[in-house]
Design a protein around this nucleic acid. Structure first.
Lengths: 248, 248
DNA sequence: TTAGTACACTGGTCTGACCAGTAGCCTGAC
DNA sequence: GTCAGGCTACTGGTCAGACCAGTGTACTAA
């Protein structure tokens, strides 16, 4: 016979558990309101400080939001990747995850998304991609910010076509973390116009591969593009970590 | 000229920021102690409840740990993937991600991990894998629980060899969610011995591929094994979503 | 040297209070 | 009838002070 180690359970943890359960089970839907702190206090039979600590934890997890003065009470939020983003960012900053690993992960995710998109795309999807590419083309003359927006939009279409929200969210999060990690080095973005043209050409290639349902080709293009754009920021000795992903 | 929207900054947020910054910058190293709540109270010039709410947030982020009675104060923790784990878990459950998407994601992650492992493995790694396979072989006769543990251990070795903690963590999380989703159907696990033999054979194959540095082969084996084992639980009309990942 | 104990202090919780701010009602002017 | 403006009851944010169970350590006694 073996026993499990026990940890004392704090009152605020019990409160968190119950509210969290209600949200996860769908009993509390996004947009709905929790009772006020004073009301929760009587419902749970604990003091207000306990309630407040519980709400703080839930707020840190991006599950609820409180605004002072609002008589409707704390708001239940829709599940968002914000908390995921924060914790991933923290990990990366703590140097447990370097740029090489992040880029590796992104190549895997982006490559897979492109592969799936190429294999699963319908004719409607192709129309959408054509439109997205067109606004990128227009964006070139409208400045970098506009082009960047169109670029993100293109990726979102790809993501939707691949039909896997997990893939999409993860890629977005990792993308964000990568950009934050190198934003200082990115300042001196030299010769933006030629950069935009390169990107445009790459997206056109990708679209061709998707149009001809060439999953492997699209995946490889996507990974290669990521490598070409970001490998320079990865310490030279770690670049071999990325190479295996580029082999066809 | 444009103005940014402003959000009121709470006192406890300022406290969180300062402590977080001290941890990130390395000024506070893991294992070190924060001053006691009452001491922090005077240092920050705020009430104890404010301090406590800040500590709760940091604790939810797995950055510190408080134990009542400890005169040394709250402990600074090493950065751990636990927070990432939690938020990914929450997101997967909240977004109503289906088994098909989860399995897809897992095939991608596991496949990539095996590919990287095959390409990056050293001779030492091979020794470790041999040992892990051996304990799986022993596990067959010792019952399913033991075998299962050895199986997990084998995967952990693979994960370590692939040298990407992000990949590992994500795969673990998705694995957990998948198991939760089908645990009820898994009860009637018929003929466990033959199941274990099948798994063992599969792992031996994978090890061969890794030994011969055949990344594509190892990846394909991993994905195929996942498909063979779990596809039956995926609704038939969604199985085509998984097929593109199996093409060599 | 070691076992035992006392003590100072810790975090967890509760109570009660005050403040600035908000939503919604009520009122009065048109 | 509509609508602007003020009133009010309530919200969350913060503070102060109190009590408790539990802990590490220094001191004591064997």
């Amino acid at each position: 016979m073996r026993f499990e180690p026990v940890a004392p359970v704090r009152a605020y943890e019990r409160v968190v558990e119950q509210i969290e359960q209600a949200v996860i089970s769908g009993e509390l839907k996004p947009g709905e309101r929790l009772p006020s702190e004073r009301e929760l206090m009587t419902q749970f039979g604990v003091g207000r400080s306990t309630i407040r600590e519980a709400l703080r934890v839930l707020q840190a997890a991006e599950m609820i939001r409180s605004r002072p003065g609002d008589p409707r009470g704390p708001e239940v939020l829709a599940a968002s990747p914000a908390a995921l983003h924060r914790s991933m960012h923290r990990l990366a900053r703590a140097n447990h995850v370097g740029l090489a690993e992040l880029l590796q992960f992104r190549m895997i995710l982006d490559g897979s998304a492109h592969l799936l998109a190429a294999e699963l795309r319908t004719d409607d999807d192709l129309t959408g991609l054509d439109a997205a590419l067109e606004s990128m083309r227009e964006g070139v003359s409208r400045g970098y910010a506009e082009f960047s927006r169109a670029d993100v939009a293109f990726h979102e279409v790809i993501a939707r076509i691949s039909r896997n929200p997990l893939l999409v969210i993860s890629e977005e999060v990792v993308r964000g973390v990568v950009l934050e990690l190198i934003e200082d080095k990115l300042e001196r973005a030299s010769n933006r116009t030629s950069l935009m043209r390169t990107w445009l050409a790459h997206h056109a290639e990708v679209l061709d591969a998707i149009r001809s349902a060439d999953g492997a080709g699209a995946a490889h293009l996507a990974k290669q593009a990521l490598y070409d754009n970001y490998a320079e920021y990865v310490p030279a000795e770690q670049r071999p970590l990325l190479a295996p992903l580029l082999r066809p």
